[in-house]
């Protein structure tokens, strides 16, 4: 080890970059850095997207699960007729689809807006 030259000295003029020094928005490259900062960016994107998904799934699942449960708790429910048609026919034969389609439409808009914001955040750099 002693035969080696002493380590070359070098003056660094720029201030070292640290995550805390960031004054501007994150850029695309940051996402690919395997440090805590890149992971945090990814996590926040995934959390936001999962949040929108859950905001659709929870009402949709409640909608599907509720009617069978009510029918067991209140057996007379299935006997109701609206405009001469059984309630079950109105719900399962068509009425349940518009809310599901609207939830889907709402999700597409929310998800696209969320991604737009994320893209803008990265490109502001």
């Amino acid at each position: 080890m002693t035969t080696h030259e002493p380590p070359r000295r070098q003056v660094i003029q720029a201030a070292p970059r640290r995550p805390s020094d960031r004054s501007v928005s994150p850029g695309t490259d940051d996402l690919y850095q395997p440090d805590a900062y890149g992971r945090e960016l990814l996590s926040s994107l995934m959390r936001a997207q999962a949040g929108v998904s859950l905001a659709v799934l929870v009402p949709a699942i409640s909608l599907l699960a509720l009617y069978p449960l009510l029918a067991v708790l209140l057996p007379s429910l299935a006997g109701y007729e609206v405009l001469g048609l059984p309630l079950t026919l109105l719900i399962l034969g068509g009425g349940i689809y518009p809310p599901l389609v609207l939830l889907g439409y709402w999700y597409v808009r929310r998800a696209e807006r969320l991604e737009q914001r994320f893209v803008e955040l990265l490109k502001e750099q």
Binding site: L92, L100, G104, Y107, A111
Partner: peptide, 15 residues
């Protein structure tokens, strides 16, 4: 419910 489930599956697939 089969029909409702076949369709609602696409909502889960979507989100």
């Amino acid at each position: 419910w089969y029909a409702v489930g076949y369709a609602a599956g696409y909502l889960v697939l979507l989100v």
